[in-house]
């Protein structure tokens, strides 16, 4: 299991558009990816659930990845939060 914290660098937070990109990205991997903000933990395969946690710019979230290809998935997610998100 890999767990990592990120700060949301997009001022608008994870709204519909970045959530779509994130879901499509994680679909490429077999690992189960979850997202946690505060006490709320959701599976990252549902846009509705991602939007429900309401991650805003500046919030800290935790990504939890578990599965056979977790290392690769973690790398892709790393790239998303550090590089891609602020462009969306």
């Amino acid at each position: 299991m890999i767990s990592k914290n990120y700060i949301i660098t997009a001022p608008e937070g994870i709204h519909a558009r970045p959530a779509t990109t994130l879901i499509r990205l994680t679909k490429k991997y077999k690992s189960v990816v979850s997202l946690k903000k505060g006490e709320n933990l959701v599976r990252l395969n549902s846009m509705l659930n991602i939007l429900t946690i309401g991650a805003k710019g500046g919030d800290t979230i935790t990504v939890i990845i578990e599965g056979e290809d977790e290392a690769h998935a973690a790398q892709a997610i790393d790239n998303f939060f550090i590089e891609e998100l602020k462009k969306l």
Binding site: A16, I23, S46, L48
Partner: peptide
């Protein structure tokens, strides 16, 4: 995004 929402597992 609408396609994702339409096929959303939670929905």
């Amino acid at each position: 995004a609408h396609i994702e929402l339409l096929t959303d597992p939670q929905l």
